[in-house]
Design a protein around this nucleic acid. Sequence first.
DNA 1: GGATTACGAGACCTTGCGGTATCGAAAACA
DNA 2: TGTTTTCGATACCGCAAGGTCTCGTAATCC
Lengths: 213, 213
Amino acid sequence: MKGSSLPTEPPEPLDGGPTRRGRPRSADAEQAILQAALDLLSEGTDLGAISINAIAARAGAGKNTVYRRWPNKDALLVDALASLNQPIPEVTGKTVRENLIRVLSVTVTRLQDTRATQIINGVMAAGMKYPQLRQRYYADVIEPRREVLRQVLRSGIANGELRPDIDPDIIGSMLTGSLILRSIEGTVPQGLPEEIATGLADTILHGISRKPD
Amino acid sequence: MKGSSLPTEPPEPLDGGPTRRGRPRSADAEQAILQAALDLLSEGTDLGAISINAIAARAGAGKNTVYRRWPNKDALLVDALASLNQPIPEVTGKTVRENLIRVLSVTVTRLQDTRATQIINGVMAAGMKYPQLRQRYYADVIEPRREVLRQVLRSGIANGELRPDIDPDIIGSMLTGSLILRSIEGTVPQGLPEEIATGLADTILHGISRKPD
DNA sequence: GGATTACGAGACCTTGCGGTATCGAAAACA
DNA sequence: TGTTTTCGATACCGCAAGGTCTCGTAATCC
């Protein structure tokens, strides 16, 4: 199991010499293959069960065309997931509450998309079998968003809106953990993302205790 | 893929007639097989990659001995997971805070056990490939504990300790979701379970906003 | 046109799986 | 002792996967 983008990859110059002799590689085929892999992922098939045959067939490509670009299945899946990157939410609100709601709304919206949740579960399912894949998904998709969340909390501490003794990591894990858990369980709340985000934000901001003493 | 404990299972009487003719089945072998399955699970291998061959070899048993007891791999894994059941925490505290800390402490302790977390991740990884297994794990292990948590919260609402407008399900998902998420990420906090539980409980009870206005 | 490379399709090989069958030995009962 | 059942081990079957190779064809450069 070798990763992609290793220096030892002769069959993927595509850029080195400006002069290529024969028929050029089809960028369309490349995209079709990546898209087919994501399609299969989003259908809930677990990672181990996705076959190169199926990907090639779905993409209308030959297995040859796949293996000319990626050395093995792992590398292909890693690249497919990497192409999922989505814009990170901007936090331009005035208050921590506003920013929390904004960030959480994006996450809720994302999780309400069946395709996305299936892929998330699939990646979780990758377990140790595809450690690179999971690692990369975390680094590329999860972590940047959690960092935004942490940043919101830290700035809240800095400007005095939040208690200074809280741990942004823990708060972040409570907020996103709640959503991730419900995603895993298949019980993602289906209301308006803003309302759900608002509920979470207000809960974590003000707590659940009746007496604010 | 058939489940276990179906009525249609002739090759597992073991109790019916008090008189069995030949050599009796070895209870040791049965335990060894279940234990071997759990061992492999706890080593992080994902469920799909655990083979009957490996289980039998690890248990020092023949495949025959396995298939004489379980009709197929699914049934064996389901039984293996079922043998993991642990006592549900009792909630005998006076206040919601006490009970929350107690319940969460048990969960933290459990997640701090590498073996348990590996198995949890493995079950998550089962995804749609072994729906029965995941279903049963949820029903037998996860759900009873979440129900205890919900009960604590509901009683807190009933006796006025908690605001009446909160949703116990959401609060529960924030608390356990935080821990599950960190378990998945491999960043389970390693301090004293009581301290970690206390931190979570107080956070959710009093919120993070500075001014309790 | 000729050389070269990529194309889709699919045959092909090896590997490993779940599951079955067969082996001789061991443990119980009659 | 003889019968029956289970034991561990292993050969075997059918299947599906990853990966390689070979087709005839299409696109690009010289």
